[in-house]
Amino acid sequence: MELTGWRLLALAAPALLGGYALATASGIFLVGLLPVPLGEAVLAGNLLGFACYAVAVIWVFALRRPVRAWLQLLLASGILAASGLLLRGQLL
């Protein structure tokens, strides 16, 4: 069975948008985690975020369940971004 039409779109949306959220959130988390000056940490977060994007896209297509992919990606993104900001003391 092939990936076409709505089935493809239903997977592409969480892969692209959810993957984007996860990539950005991973970058933010990494900035919080790294014990280096802020400018350098942001640079590192930006460098590595894209790898997370590629992994997220592949993961969504391997899972093949759009709703579950959305939920897990957004949940993971929220947790990662929040803990990154907490670690740098940006939320308190």
Binding site: A23, I28, G39, V42, N46, G49, R88, Q90
Partner: peptide, 28 residues
């Protein structure tokens, strides 16, 4: 990188041009 994922920078330096300049100064 910065135009594709601007939020990583914005999360720590804000969204105004001043913050962005500060980031570029810090990093480069």
């Amino acid at each position: 990188g910065f135009s594709l994922m601007p939020l990583v920078v914005a999360a720590y330096y804000g969204t105004d041009p001043k913050g962005r300049q500060q980031f570029i100064a810090d990093a480069f």
